[in-house]
Design a protein around this nucleic acid. Structure first.
Lengths: 138, 138
DNA sequence: GTGTTTGCAAAGTGTTTGCAATTTA
DNA sequence: TAAATTGCAAACACTTTGCAAACAC
């Protein structure tokens, strides 16, 4: 079951993160969180904002995506050497990456089981375990 | 047990891939495959070549890395949005990524077990399953 | 000789930055 | 009004490309 994050929740999260709820940040948050789980690049979100008559610069989109990521309301996914993807689903899960189209699709965490991992060196710890299933045309 | 790839083997693989064994390609192959399993970026390999008095341009290093990857004697690893890593170990295995230092370390394939995967859509197939364990300082 | 490969410098791509103008609290 | 945020354009890092010169077969 998908949980829809209410708009006010984002407002609270911005406040908690010490981010002022500016016109741009609220508009981007709305685009990001009102459509269920999404995977976006900066360029995609920028184009979408312009299409929705939201005036934002690309630089602000980049800044906002990183601020949201630091605030824990977005998660960055590394699947492609040349672009950064951001995922509105911050819970523990994995991804299909369709190499032809550049699309990402969530894989529920419980569909993949990670066995015993070698322990990290002392002083270091595991930040995340990211599984990417790469899909191509046959 | 690590298998050391004999130098002549690389020569054969180049021939098989239809790549002429030029001075640059042989020198880069030597650097790559004579030191056991390695993870390199183009800049790293270029610097190493220059240090070993091998004259190669960065552009040729990039070209060569991709040619080797297409020939199946290297594998590209995506862990960092801003650089491409190449792994001399092309067998099925996974990686630790130390975010602080940018270093990669192999994780033997049998230390991680992937359970049942959702099937890919018709006409598409799984190209690879890449697991990256991200490590940071505590 | 003929086709391949190389090196250089220029172009490209996605991303970040510096700073004046604007907006928020 | 003081501090944070934005937008723009310039700067950036990494990677690719075009083309003449060098090289392999």
């Amino acid at each position: 079951m998908k949980k829809v994050r209410p708009y006010s929740h984002v407002l609270d999260q911005l406040r908690t993160a010490g981010l002022r709820p500016t016109r741009q940040r609220l508009a981007l948050a709305k685009l990001l969180f009102e459509g269920g789980d999404r995977h976006v690049t900066a360029e995609m979100l920028h184009a979408e904002a312009l299409g929705a008559a939201v005036r934002v610069s690309l630089a602000t989109v980049y800044n906002t995506l990183h601020q949201f990521t630091n605030a824990g309301i977005l998660r960055e996914i590394v699947v492609d050497a040349s672009r950064s993807y951001f995922d509105t689903n911050t819970s523990n899960h994995h991804h299909f990456f369709f190499e032809d189209s550049g699309e990402l699709q969530d894989i529920e965490s419980d569909l993949i089981t990670i066995g015993e991992l070698p322990p990290p060196p002392p002083g270091k710890s595991v930040k995340s375990v990211d599984v990417v299933v790469r899909i191509t045309a046959d």
